[in-house]
């Protein structure tokens, strides 16, 4: 019973919100190009679904590519930093600088480097920059999170450097890696959209392009419909990774 009300609560709340929105638009006679009512957004969503789905797929593919690239680079760099304090001190300022610089600010530069005829590469690169940090810091934290007493045991039993890495530090880092990837996946989607705003999209137009295009033409309902697709996509990806993380943790710790 409690579970049922828990499930119903957000549905009812959002329903009421949409209803109030619809009523306000109609009663106050707000022009559709300013704020379309939910019904108009629903219509736009159905009408433009094939186009929006294709654009959504492009954005998702960009985000996933970015995630893969960020994951590989960040894991390798975290490993290097985890193995050598010197490497860590050397790259830490660079990583932090990259992280605090807004991606939109470096978009024009990356667009030039990627080649002006390949903005989609620039978008992937930019999204990868955004997704890099959570994986890097998660992996590095994990490599350093070794139980000190367990490490003493490894020392007592004469473990080599490699044995300590393979049998102690890497397994310890696994849950931190999951967490880092979960955060990174959400950020990769955000990065893919922001980067497309900044760098354009070339042949493969994503949802950012759809939003810009619809806004420019004052098709506000269509812009909203693209937003809905984006939100659903982001939330689904997060839920999927959350589920994967939970499963993986069960595997890691046996329950």
């Amino acid at each position: 019973m409690k579970r049922l009300t828990d499930l119903a609560a957000p549905v009812v709340f959002v329903g009421l919100l949409l209803l109030a929105w619809e009523m306000a638009c109609r009663l106050l006679e707000i022009p559709t190009y300013r704020l379309p009512p939910p019904s108009a957004i629903g219509e736009a969503l159905i009408e433009n679904f094939p186009l929006l789905a294709r654009s959504g797929w492009n954005t998702l593919a960009t985000a996933l590519w970015a995630l893969v690239i960020a994951s590989l680079l960040a894991s390798l760099m975290a490993l290097a930093a985890g193995l050598s304090g010197l490497v860590e001190r050397a790259i830490q300022p660079v990583v932090v600088t990259l992280q605090v610089t807004p991606v939109i600010a470096i978009a024009p530069l990356v667009t030039i480097w990627a080649g002006l005829e390949h903005p989609e590469r620039a978008v992937i690169g930019l999204a990868a920059v955004v997704a890099f940090f959570p994986v890097f810091s998660g992996a590095l934290t994990g490599l350093k999170a070794v139980d000190p007493d367990l490490e003493r045991l490894f020392d007592l039993y004469g473990a080599s450097r490699w044995q300590k890495l393979w049998r102690l530090r890497l397994p310890t880092a696994v849950p931190f890696l999951f967490e880092g990837h979960k955060v990174a996946a959400g950020l990769a989607v955000v990065g893919a959209v922001v980067a497309e705003f900044g760098a354009g999209s070339g042949g493969s137009q994503g949802l950012a392009w759809r939003i810009l295009e619809a806004s420019n033409r004052l098709q506000t309902a269509k812009a909203f419909a693209a937003l809905v697709v984006l939100a659903v996509m982001g939330a689904s990806l997060y839920a999927l990774l959350q589920l994967a993380e939970r499963r993986a943790l069960v595997w890691w710790r046996g329950r």
Binding site: Y157, Q163, R167, W252, G254
Partner: peptide, 25 residues
């Protein structure tokens, strides 16, 4: 050495934990 906490590796089975010192050697 035995510590105050069991200090076992959570990703390994009991058997693998016990075998660890021998494998490290």
């Amino acid at each position: 050495l035995v510590f105050q906490a069991p200090t076992l590796a959570p990703w390994m089975s009991a058997l693998a934990n016990v075998a660890l010192p021998l494998e490290l050697a």
